[in-house]
Design a protein around this nucleic acid. Sequence first.
RNA 1: GGCGACAUGGCCAAGUGGUAAGGCAGGAGUCUGCAAAACUCUCAUCCCCAGUUCAAAUCUGGGUGUCGCCUCCA
Length: 500
Amino acid sequence: MKIYDTLSQKIREFHPLDDNKVKMYVCGPTVYDYPHLGHARCYITWDVVSRYLRFKGYDVTYVRNITDVDDKIINRARENNLTPKELATTYYKEFQKAMEALNVAPPDIEPKATETIEDMIKIIKKLEEKGYAYASEGDVYFRVSKFKKYGRLGKQSIDDLQSGARVEASDKKENPLDFALWKAIKTENEISWDSPWGKGRPGWHIECSAMSEKYLGEQIDIHAGGQDLIFPHHENEKAQSEACFDKDFVNFWMHNGFVTTNNEKMSKSLGNFLTINDLLEKYDANTIRLFILTNHYRMPVEFADESLKAAKNGVKRLKNAFEDIKNTVGEEKIKEAEKLITPIIDEIVKTGQLPFHKIDTVQDIEEIIPASLMENCIKNLKYFITAMDEDFNTSKALSVLFDIASCAQKTRESKNPEASAFCLALLLKLASVLGFDLTKSESLNDELSSQLMELVISIRQKAREEKNWAMSDFIRDELGKLNIVLKDQKDKPTIWSIQD
RNA sequence: GGCGACAUGGCCAAGUGGUAAGGCAGGAGUCUGCAAAACUCUCAUCCCCAGUUCAAAUCUGGGUGUCGCCUCCA
């Protein structure tokens, strides 16, 4: 598979550094406010990347940190009369809640900056010993001029940066470009830790160098985050880690594009952001995910209500495939189909070939699934893999889901329940690789409501038998107002579902 | 000023030099008591100009427009 690497600005063939183990580090949020759509885009993207790498058989260790100490947290806490820890905890919980609601799988390890201070100090000390860092009035700065490769990731030359003069000049720094590894306390009662340079707290960039090394080692396969982190954050991380460990820090730097509104980046500083909570009131996790994944992860995504609505209807189509087929063939058949297709998917992912050596399995399947349909499923599966192998082309991959859904519906109509279930099983599997859950549906949460619902349906059925269309349509319309949608089926009981 | 992107149908969007995936919306039909869902059919020559080539949305050059980074940001 191929992945675009920001450093080389090229799409390169991906090979893990160590066997099939993938070490992946994603820069997590600074928890000082509600997470917004930009965060959703970012973490959905890396969620899909980690899911797909696992689907491909890689042994992924996914680390995503939480920045729980920094200027913004400290200031915001002060404004609200809270300790930084209290504020960070509040918004960390909000973040977790949002991720769960978006069906973003938790990372394997989620370290917090405040729990990694010791490790940061170790790195800073080493950098100081090696001459890459210097202490100045209790602060410690990274000596940018000593690190020759500085600026390569962000494509900035030190000269240009210096003439840019947007960096904060300070008497404490040898060079305006030098950045803080450690910041001394200014007042006695602010949050701080003891260090060889006195009481203080870490600079922003050092935490990722430390957490990455602590949980994944000195070299990692993938380091990801939003495009806005390329410079200076990732540039600085890279400088610190490589200066400290004398090794290339990261094999593939990956960065996702922004969410924009009115053609402008959605960000906290611009105040034009839409929180995930607000969004979830109107659209569900699948819809938000489809909206995001229709765009390639490196392209900007323009937020528009119309696009979300389009995504919502798209999700409905995929979910209808599941619901229609479940109602026609039953859940048992779908489970059986899942058992049939799993070894096929595994084998194609691994070898690109059908498992011909497992003759028995193939013969069993041939008796149930028509060859042409089988061929179509395999074609789609391979197309999905090819698309995702090309730097995670989710937009292309999604077209496969729609094709399989349509295929499943067609076979359902042609009354081939096994074949239909087989397509559906493939759909569910590939959808889950992209983080969709098509099986989850709104349901009535208590027994009595369900029973009443059955009663209403049977009353309407009586009316229909008596050709009392006025009554039966009235019931259907009124239920519609409650977001309950009825589907009459020929020779089968009416089915209903709750749609948001 | 430096660096990096983007410009494809009504909207969103993929596109690896050989003749435009997919989704949404729209139109026509099948099914249905009517709906809904589903199914079938239908709907573009790719910002402008020049060049390379037998052949370009895809490569080169020049425009025009939009965005991002260079300061906290996913």
